[in-house]
Simulated assay, not measured.
Amino acid sequence: MITPRQAARQRRHRRRLMLGATSALIAAGILTHLVMTLLPDRNTDPEPAAAAPLATTQVEATAARETGTPTATASATGSPTPTPTASSTGSPAPTSAATTTSARPAPTDSPRTKREPATTSQAGRLQPNTTYKGVATAYEAGDGNGACLFGPSPDLMIAAMNTTDYETSKACGAYVLVRAANGKSITVRITNECPLPCAPGQIDLSRQAFAALADLKVGRIPITWSLVSPSTSDTISVRYKTGSSAHWCALQAIGHRNPLARLEVSTASGWRQLSRTAYNYFISADGSGCGSAIRLTDIYGERLTINGITVRPNVVQPARVQFARH
Results as ranks from 00 to 15, higher is better:
102 S>D: 13
157 M>P: 06
105 P>G: 06
164 T>W: 08
163 T>M: 04
135 V>D: 01
120 T>N: 14
148 C>D: 02
140 E>T: 15
121 S>F: 11
115 R>E: 15
120 T>H: 07
120 T>R: 12
106 A>T: 13
150 F>C: 03
156 L>W: 09
127 Q>P: 01
148 C>W: 00
120 T>F: 09
146 G>S: 04
145 N>P: 02
95 T>D: 11
131 T>I: 13
137 T>W: 08
148 C>N: 01
95 T>Q: 09
156 L>E: 09
118 A>Q: 11
98 A>W: 07
130 T>E: 12
157 M>D: 13
107 P>N: 10
135 V>T: 11
112 R>P: 01
157 M>F: 10
143 D>W: 00
113 T>C: 09
155 D>Y: 02
139 Y>G: 05
160 A>W: 03
156 L>T: 13
115 R>L: 11
100 T>I: 14
151 G>S: 07
145 N>Q: 09
132 Y>I: 00
126 L>G: 13
115 R>V: 04
120 T>S: 15
106 A>W: 13
160 A>D: 04
114 K>P: 01
121 S>K: 03
95 T>E: 10
141 A>M: 02
141 A>N: 03
139 Y>P: 09
113 T>E: 08
141 A>H: 03
118 A>Y: 03
135 V>R: 12
129 N>D: 14
116 E>Y: 02
133 K>G: 09
153 S>A: 14
130 T>M: 05
125 R>P: 07
145 N>G: 10
145 N>R: 07
